[in-house]
Amino acid sequence: MRNLLPPPRSGQPAGAEAHERADAARNRQLLLDAAQQLVREQGVDGLTMDALAKRAGVGKGTVFRRFGNRSGLMRALLDHSDTKFQAAFMFGPPPLGPGAPALDRLIAFGRARLLDIEVEGELHRAAEIGEGVGRYGGPPYGLLKAHVSLLLRAADAHGEIPLLADGLLAVLGAPMVLYQMTALGYTREQIGDNWEAFVRRIVE
C-alpha cells in the first residue's frame, strides 16, 4: 500500500515533526489567550506586540514570527475569540450550550455575544465594517445564522426563519452595540435585557 504520509524533513522522525507541530499550535493558543486577557484588561489599544511578548513571557521576535504584525495579531485574535464562542454555544454547558430550552439558549446566545463585543468590540467592528456586505455570505456569519435559525425553529417561532435570524443578529452587530454603549450610554445589561425582550416577542 502506498504511504500517504509526507516524508520527514531532514531525516527527522515523523513523530518528532508531529510533536513540533503540536507544540507550535499550543504555543500559538497560549499567545492568543494572553492577547485576549490584555484586551479585556486594557482595551484594544493596550494590545501591542511588546505588551503581548511581556505578558506571555516570550521574546518579541516570537510574537512577530507567529503573527507577522499587529494587524495579523488582531485578525488571529478575532478568529480565536469567534472559535471559542462557537465552541461554547455548540458544545458548552447550558443555557448557552445544548441541554436548555431553545428560548433560554437564544437569550443566553445574545448575552454571551454582547460580552464579547463589550471587551473586544473594536475588533468585531473593524472586521464587520471591513467585510462589508460580503460578510453575510461568509462562513462565520453563516454559522451564527444557522444556529439562531435552528433555535428559532425549535422554539416554534412563526414567520420566515432566515429573515428572523438576520433581524436578531442585526441587534448584536458590533457597530450598533458599540454606538449604544458609547454614544447613547446604555450598559451591556440594558442591551441584553432589550435582546431578551426582543427574542420573547418573536418566540412567545
Rank of each mutant, 00 (worst) to 15 (best):
V171Q: 10
A157M: 11
R200C: 04
K54I: 13
L123I: 00
R65V: 07
A35P: 03
Q190H: 08
L168G: 04
L31S: 03
F198P: 00
L172K: 03
G59V: 02
P139D: 06
H124Q: 06
A165I: 04
H124G: 05
G11I: 05
L143T: 13
R28F: 03
R66M: 11
S10G: 07
E189T: 12
R200H: 05
G130W: 02
R9I: 10
H19M: 10
V199Q: 00
A126W: 03
K60T: 09
V119N: 05
N3P: 04
F89C: 02
T83Q: 15
D116C: 08
R111F: 01
L144V: 01
L78W: 07
M176I: 08
N3G: 10
A170M: 15
M49W: 07
P13Q: 14
V133I: 14
K84H: 13
M90Q: 13
D193E: 15
V44P: 01
R2G: 07
L184C: 11
D33T: 12
G159P: 06
L4W: 11
P13H: 15
T187Q: 05
M181W: 03
V119W: 15
R40K: 11
L106I: 05
L31N: 03
N3S: 14
H124A: 13
G142M: 00
A197K: 14
V148K: 01
A174R: 03
A126Q: 11
T62I: 12
R2H: 09
A56F: 08
T83W: 04
K84N: 10
G159I: 14
M1N: 13
L31T: 02
M90C: 06
D156C: 03
P13W: 15
R55S: 08
R201L: 12
F64E: 03
D23P: 02
V177D: 02
